[in-house]
Design a protein around this nucleic acid. Structure first.
Lengths: 70, 70
DNA sequence: GCCCATTTGTACGTATGTATG
DNA sequence: GCATACATACGTACAAATGGG
């Protein structure tokens, strides 16, 4: 599995487990980069997956947040 | 060589030559941006290099200063 | 105490180049 | 050719703290 999908799976798990609650901000791109030792491109692709799944919402220049809906 | 390393080299030169003495503030990020026609990201990466080398210390909301130590 | 400019901190958006499988 | 992944580098926007007046 490509890195960005692995990272997406990790984040998805934290959302589904409730570790990241609705409305909570996801860790920032730069944090996720360092935390998982991947490039920003990879982080962004991972977040894009979750966005496409409707699990998170990204507010430009603000951050990405766990979506309210289920 | 990437731009940020080139800029870091320029600043390092000014420190080592004494043009920027210990305790002196470095030019601000916005000044360096305009002076060298680069983005703020590039300036910040250059300064980060010097910080990692221990040549400068950055005080949040104050500026970056030439380190006292050698 | 209050504005206001300056400066660094943070965060996302976008684009290009390079390399690998 | 294409997807993946890294690095570099541009921009925009806003937050937070400091210091001067």
């Amino acid at each position: 599995m490509p890195l960005y999908r692995q990272l997406a799976a990790i984040l998805r798990g934290k959302i589904e487990s409730g570790e990241l609650a609705k409305g909570d901000p996801l860790p920032s791109e730069s944090y996720l980069q360092q935390e998982h030792s991947v490039s920003r491109v990879t982080v962004r692709k991972a977040v894009e997956v979750l966005r496409d799944e409707g699990l998170v919402i990204t507010l430009p220049q603000r951050g990405t947040f766990v979506a309210e809906k289920k």
